[in-house]
Design a protein around this nucleic acid. Sequence first.
DNA 1: GAGTTTTTTTGACAAAAGTCAAAATCGAAA
DNA 2: TTTCGATTTTGACTTTTGTCAAAAAAACTC
Lengths: 187, 187
Amino acid sequence: MLWLLNQISQFAPISPEGQLALASVLVRKEVPKGYVLLEHGKICRHLYMLEKGFARGYYTQDGRDISLWFAFEGDILASYYSFVTLKPSYTTIEILEDSTIAGVSYDQLNELYRNYPEFNLIGRLMTEKYFIELEERTLSFQFQSASERYHQLIEKHPQLLQKASLGHIASFLGISQETLSRIRAKK
Amino acid sequence: MLWLLNQISQFAPISPEGQLALASVLVRKEVPKGYVLLEHGKICRHLYMLEKGFARGYYTQDGRDISLWFAFEGDILASYYSFVTLKPSYTTIEILEDSTIAGVSYDQLNELYRNYPEFNLIGRLMTEKYFIELEERTLSFQFQSASERYHQLIEKHPQLLQKASLGHIASFLGISQETLSRIRAKK
DNA sequence: GAGTTTTTTTGACAAAAGTCAAAATCGAAA
DNA sequence: TTTCGATTTTGACTTTTGTCAAAAAAACTC
């Protein structure tokens, strides 16, 4: 429990009452490798943070799946889109390593927002953070070649090579697995 | 003034006091076509909304500029990245049609956030909205061909063809102008 | 450790997109 | 209207990436 409070209060300090209220609704779970946290087509009703482990989100298109993101420790596990709009998620969330997750349900979070407005500040700052990260990713598609995107990704997350398959990484970069293999081959 | 209050309160109702406070710090400006609202390298210290007119944000790379977004009425004009982090903006914001803009400065907005916490809710909801739009754009790069991206863009914003040059649109789609021209040629 | 399954790499070819240069078209100004 | 300048299109060619199939390598199971 403490861990998540700690993570969140890095965005903005939380009052003791807020901390208590959050702690009382927090859910903490151990989930095994292969577990599907959110299924395509279902509504995302929980906002989890990955305390320990590894996961990814992906779309399915014409039978093949395309990675949207990888989650490391401290990252959010949710379909923002579905969680915010309460519409069915396009994303499937798959646990890739035995993990510990902690989070709150949609209803509970909105209770928190209502009763402890300070959480709106945190919510805003976290959303801003993820917005900026996503912006960077969008720009990488617009500006960089596949090879540049790959090398930059590996530089930022060297662990990724141990944790995810090349197929997962290739689809994340928006290229075929063969192209990624060739990028890796040269130099 | 009323217009902007109206727009914003679509995200969440604002108390009369909040409305007054916002109104008292709002800036409203007429800016001519060609005006540069934010220069690359400068810190974005204002959050404007486009009341009327048309604008775009772009990066410059190797002498050529690449459109990041187009802004229609009701859209935000700012470099989120720079505004949130107070680091120099990579984006340049250019007014493409005589426009009316309305907004607040960084300091004033943070005063509002501090004195009227309800604005954090609005800030969060607006950021969420833009996050989801950006997510869609990112996916389009990962999933769709240039041709699909083009047709979808035009379907969503038919006015764009009247307002922006093909060069601007091509760079927004992440392709060369010649490729866009050829996409348009076939059917 | 042999055999099976999955992942990764390689080869051959096709399709998509980029580049450079020139031509055609469009629009505003004289 | 004519002209100048910018935008858009077209042509020829190159580079990048995709696809399908097969081979090689790695990981897993018994």
